[in-house]
Amino acid sequence: MSADSEQRTIRCLIAKVGLDGHDRGAHVISRAFRDAGFEVIYSGLHRAPDEIIQATVQEDVDVLGISILSGAHNTLVPKVMAGLEEYGALDDTLVIVGGIIPEEDRPGLLDEGVDAIFGPGTPMQETIDFVKENAPERK
């Protein structure tokens, strides 16, 4: 109740990148995040990496969640990461990837700067807890 008590709300962008029309997972996670008290911006389907970068930078989200089920993650995710870097948004954005990511591709994505990958069957609470614990400080 102090005068400058900050109204800390975690902001997330849930993004569907590329030619991938499967958005049930993105919807479910958007809703779970909302119910966890986060502010969720949903990108809509078929977004280009540029759009995701633009939205992440402008909305100053704490968390970028990329949902990919098309198998194009090795092409699309690095593009997004490079764009975030260009606008100085990489360091203070928690990037998580969800969807179908084969085990052998994961180290590569993590090397690109992705903070975590959540495959099918991950309990919702696990993702929410991860975000709550790792959402970067805003300075």
Partner: peptide, 27 residues
């Protein structure tokens, strides 16, 4: 919960990737 889904951005289809349109959602 204080949570929100900010859905206006989804309609900004004409200004894709145009950084000179600065779009910001607020709740």
């Amino acid at each position: 919960t204080g949570g929100a889904v900010l859905g206006d951005r989804i309609r900004m289809a004409s200004n894709v990737g145009d950084m000179d349109v600065f779009f910001r959602s607020m709740s």
